[in-house]
């Protein structure tokens, strides 16, 4: 039987600040390319995000981050996934993250980082390139 699997992505916008317009735009773009997007909205803690990702059995967690909050959110999400034996869930991130930090985060387990200049097409291309199932 041909696989009827869908790529599932959880989109979250952790941190206390801002709005979630960007995250919504990404969610819709991923939907329009055939993915199932679980949208969890603002102010999610790393614990919430990881628990939701496991329940939803997603392939990717997409973290949309505006402020400098990533320095504590990234490591926490990475650790929690390890703790829960769910390291196969890949983390991608969007937002303003200093260029010089990117290699470090990549090494720690953030698979891809999309800066302010990248388009939703780049994200879709990246996910499709991963050839899930």
């Amino acid at each position: 039987m041909a696989s009827k699997g869908k790529i599932r992505v959880l989109i979250a916008k952790p941190g206390l600040d801002g709005h979630d317009r960007g995250a919504k735009v990404i969610a819709r773009a991923l939907r329009d390319s055939g993915m199932e997007v679980i949208y969890t909205g603002l102010r999610q803690t790393p614990e919430d995000i990881v628990e939701a990702a496991i329940q939803e059995d997603v392939h990717f967690i997409g973290l949309s981050i505006l402020s400098g909050a990533h320095t504590h959110i990234f490591p926490r999400v990475i650790d929690l996934l390890k703790e829960k034996d769910a390291e196969d869930i890949k983390i991608i991130a969007g937002g303003i993250i200093p260029d010089e930090e990117i290699p470090k985060w990549n090494e720690m387990g953030i698979e891809a980082i999309f800066g302010p200049g990248s388009s939703t097409k780049d994200i879709i291309k990246y996910i499709d390139g991963k050839n899930i199932e």
Binding site: A27, R31, D32, S33, G34, M35, E36, V37, Y39
Partner: peptide
Amino acid sequence: SPFSGGAVLGDRL
């Protein structure tokens, strides 16, 4: 979505 086969699942919000 009948067009793309994708979906935005927002109930969890």
